[in-house]
């Protein structure tokens, strides 16, 4: 649907159009929020808040502003960052000994748990989620946002540049640095 028509219908409080809009974007925003909070309950709360905010403030929306989807991504990023700021938990170093075993040639293998067979899957995923949260949250703000938009939304540099109000070349540099720093942090946390 054309954005102008969409906004008009949303301003007219068309519930059906709003429901379709929510269904179109809910998973995208959920994944984006997951990239910051790594907790499905928190991520869902964030998505709910964003859509409620959109519904409440759609009257003040003016065409000619950024695209509605870009606005949604920006609001989700900011809200997720605020949630992360208010939640400070998990230790710095996570024990991954349960994933590690000696291989036949004397080396070390790390086995990724099988979701179906492993009854402790939830706990292990929690630990990995903790590592990711810690590692990503230690990145400088711009690097964090750019990396999450790329990793969790599979956005192109151009799309990321729109959301972050940056140039495309700047985004590429930021993502390169983000990856470098992230590797350092992940390996530090998984000692």
């Amino acid at each position: 649907m054309d954005e102008e028509i969409l906004v008009k219908k949303l301003k007219a409080r068309d519930q059906k159009v709003f429901q379709d809009f929510v269904n179109e974007y809910k998973d995208k925003l959920f994944r984006l929020a997951m990239g910051f909070v790594h907790d499905s309950f928190l991520a869902e709360d964030i998505v709910q808040d964003v859509f409620v905010k959109l519904w409440q403030n759609i009257d003040s929306w003016e065409l000619g502003n950024a695209k509605l989807s870009t606005w949604l991504y920006k609001v989700t990023v900011n809200h997720a960052l605020n949630v992360v700021r208010s939640k400070k938990k998990t230790s710095n170093v996570v024990d991954i000994s349960q994933f590690v075993r000696e291989s036949d040639d004397g080396g070390i293998e790390i086995q990724i748990p099988d979701n179906e067979k492993n009854p402790h899957n939830k706990l292990e995923n929690k630990e990995l989620a903790g590592i990711l949260r810690k590692a990503i949250n230690t990145l400088p703000k711009k690097q964090r946002i750019a990396f999450v938009l790329r990793q969790y939304q599979n956005m192109s540099s151009k799309e990321i540049a729109e959301v972050m109000d940056l140039s495309v070349s700047n985004v590429d540099v930021i993502i390169h640095r983000a990856k470098k720093n992230l590797q350092k942090q992940i390996l530090k946390l998984m000692k």
Partner: peptide
């Protein structure tokens, strides 16, 4: 080790 964490990020994504 790195791949384990990044694979999990892919799962989340």
């Amino acid at each position: 080790k790195l791949a384990l964490a990044l694979d999990y990020a892919n799962t989340e994504a």
